[in-house]
Design a protein around this nucleic acid. Structure first.
Lengths: 204, 204
DNA sequence: GTCTATAGCCAGATAGAC
DNA sequence: GTCTATCTGGCTATAGAC
């Protein structure tokens, strides 16, 4: 199960579009290539999704809805901050290794069209920092961690976790790694990064 | 001095191309728009740069050569690791606030065309991690910092500094900031980030 | 629902006058 | 060096047969 032939046309199109859009972006993608990958012709793309723009939006929303739940570990889980950081770093990196194009796709298209995010914010299920901020405030009050602005901490956490997937070509070049050793490098970050963050906010 | 009218045509073109390519990328940019911004016509673009591709390459190399020296503070400066981190974080953030499109442009186009970096590596002046690695090894040996892989530390440092410029729309949405408060937020990172990193590698 | 054929447009590139 | 005009190809989108 799970082979392309088992899916209906609409799903085949969305799969193919995901593939092409996520690696080449909106402007760099061609409807012809999507049609070829889906094993149908261009006319069908328009029959199901009316326009390139609408097909792109479907792919984008789909991608974002895949990404957003990953933040739950850090934002809404009830465990201690230290556990949240450990779990998030491991889970998120594992997930991204399976979807390496995703971060760049989202970041890229949001930078190109900032209005996209407004549409996303209207949706229920858009991640919120409320609980995370409370948790940080509590652990600071209890003396468990050093005083830090919760927004800054949040950005640091996602920066350290996402950047290796955004800057892969750059980092590979600087550190002289090939794809194989880069994979090992990222794998190690599952523990490296959480240790790094926990050290940084540890009360001394 | 410095006004567009004082520059020769070739420079005007490069300036205009920089503008358009850096905000819209290779695929999203139009030669017509570049010509308009440069105050000339399309034919001139081809007269000076032969093709869109070559014009783009000129802009890209130019952008990268602007970015690379910024890494010298962290890679080749002779001061202590702590000072390097402090200075780099401040300098880099200051520089990027003046060129906010740069990081996304570089990252984006490198992801779309990984061969670009091979061409860049051939150039003299491509940043090298040698001295930084020695410095890290020394300070570990002297017990000044906790043991850490130099590559991982390097990635952490640039991740924390670059990500706010890559993920601006996303972060703005999560933290409910407008452009003005986002600028304040990034300004604060000049000290926040270096403290964070120094805490993380402090020997305890 | 699925196809072929084509309309209609737009972009990069070039020819050729000045 | 700089311009106008135009070629040429490729792309999104649609018409219309089956």
């Amino acid at each position: 199960m799970g082979k392309k032939k088992d899916k209906n046309t609409e799903e085949q199109i969305l799969d193919a579009a995901k593939n092409v859009f996520q690696s080449k972006g909106m402007d760099g993608s061609r409807m012809q290539e999507i049609a070829d990958k889906a094993g149908i012709n261009k006319a069908m793309l328009h029959y199901y999704y009316r326009s390139k723009h609408l097909l792109f939006e479907a792919v984008f929303k789909n991608a974002f809805s895949l990404l957003a739940p990953q933040l739950n570990t850090i934002l809404n889980d009830d465990s201690s901050l230290e556990d949240k950081i450990k779990n998030f770093t491991t889970d998120y990196t594992t997930f991204m290794m399976k979807h390496p194009y995703l971060p760049n796709f989202i970041i890229q298209e949001l930078n190109r069209n900032e209005d996209f995010i407004l549409k996303l914010k209207e949706n229920t299920g858009f991640p919120t920092l409320e609980k995370f901020k409370e948790k940080v405030a509590n652990e600071i009050k209890q003396g468990k961690i050093t005083p830090i602005d919760a927004d800054q901490l949040f950005v640091n956490i996602i920066a350290l976790n996402i950047f290796p997937f955004l800057g892969k070509p750059l980092i590979k070049a600087f550190t002289h790694k090939d794809d194989k050793s880069y994979k090992v490098f990222v794998e190690k970050r599952k523990t490296e990064v959480s240790n790094f963050i926990i050290n940084a906010i540890k009360n001394t």
